[in-house]
Nucleic acid binder design. Structure first.
Lengths: 246, 246
DNA sequence: CGATCTGTTGCATGATATGAAACTTGTTGC
DNA sequence: GCAACAAGTTTCATATCATGCAACAGATCG
């Protein structure tokens, strides 16, 4: 474990969507470093293009080199590129935002986000991790998850995000049975008020869930009446992607 | 300049699309480090999630943390998010791949890539830098570039990529005059045989080029007959984005 | 103008990253 | 089945190199 590299990585991770620009002092305080140390580490990171200075103020922000490197991340790369056209299709058909997500431990991680045409911007969820029980993608995965893993999810306490979040494991279990029956999962304002989503799992030939596709949008557009139709579309998309993978 | 951080960054940059997975020896040789040093640096990077080990072979590849961090890169973030729906629209209308690019020094850097529905995968160009004179986006920017900068481009030797690459500065200058007349730029197999593209610049109120939008596809789909129609569409998209920015 | 906050730069110190070599582990060849 | 080889990790002594302090330089503010 090399200390200076660890510290440099910590500096990178100190940035987030709330604070896209930070000064040396802010950063050193967050990470717990001397400002002189932080200053030199940041200068090195800047030299590498991993951070940059904002022209006006002299604060730091994450650099474009990260975007370039992220393009080479091969993890799930095949799945992503394979799925992309299908996802674009789904976004066009539904005029809503589409996500592709996979299971990572006991969380869902978003691999891809495709905005529908004509829509206002939506926050970027790519790379974000969420629990399984309160998002549509997570539920779609959970529904087909075999026993040792799924039991662990039900056993752990289920965090409450809104008043619609399901925190009762028995209720969740029953809902998952229904997901297996109809093929798609639904989450209505369970992680964020007003955010509705429908998702379907992409399973391998053994029936194990590999990934999930979702369509999501504001409650006033993704209404209860539309859910059946959207469900059919996400299931179709998931089936298409699964077909391409095998 | 902190040596170990510089070396760690060099290790990250040693990965590219040709070699997505590398062993400790490969990496140490590429960067010019002792394998023991490389081993420790990589272990640290792995701990930070910036690289991961491939489950089967124990080689390293870039980690998903990079994708997460890249999502927070705010550089041109506004432009990107603002442009995204328009780009998605353009992709849907043309059924071809759409790119958004900006000028970075004397090169073009791709910020965004949107795949059209129904299409086979295209290589990822996001983050890649290309010269100005042989890609449609670059020409669109070059055409509106004011004198001190554009003169430097024409003065420098123009690299030849295919037999259709324009390497004569006078010819290029004349073509740029035509771009200013019709509003869009065209590149036909000038950086890669069989890759055709049409692009238009997004200019600020002073007429300075800020970014460019392009539509590209294989030569058999992006035919000379379609170019006029595609030109009109990219110009419309560029105008829409420019309008949203001001 | 003094006061305060932010960020960079010398400098002495010793903590820490380094390279050589030893040691594992896995693979290939005979 | 064993030897030879390659890839990777670990140990250890060494001195390099990162560190923290303090002083300095700008900027902002009252």
């Amino acid at each position: 474990m090399i200390q200076s590299v660890q510290r440099a990585a910590a500096l990178l991770k100190a940035f987030d969507s709330d604070t896209p620009e930070l000064g040396v002092n802010d950063l050193s305080r967050r990470v717990g470093l001397h400002k002189s140390t932080a200053s030199r580490l940041l200068a090195t990171l800047e030299h590498a293009g991993l951070v940059e200075r904002v022209p006006g103020t002299e604060k730091y922000r994450l650099g474009f080199e990260l975007v370039r490197l992220a393009g080479y991340v091969r993890h799930y790369g095949d799945l992503r590129e394979l799925a992309r056209p299908v996802l674009a299709d789904l976004a066009a058909q539904t005029s809503e935002t589409v996500h592709l997500a996979v299971l990572d431990g006991d969380e869902v991680i978003n691999l891809e986000q495709i905005e529908a045409p004509h829509m206002l911007r939506e926050a970027n969820w790519v790379g974000r991790r969420t629990p399984l029980h309160c998002v549509a993608n997570g539920k779609a995965l959970l529904a087909w998850l075999p026993d040792p893993q799924s039991a662990a999810i039900y056993a752990a306490p289920l965090a409450q995000y809104t008043d619609r979040t399901i925190t009762d494991p028995h209720l969740l279990r029953r809902q998952m049975a229904q997901v297996r029956r109809c093929g798609y999962a639904v989450a209505l304002g369970e992680i964020e008020i007003g955010l509705h989503a429908v998702a379907a799992a992409i399973c391998d030939r053994d029936g194990l869930p590999l990934a999930a596709v979702s369509v999501s949008g504001p409650a006033y557009r993704v209404t209860p009446q539309r859910i059946d139709a959207l469900g059919a579309l996400v299931v179709a998309a998931a089936t298409t992607i699964a077909g391409r993978m095998l």
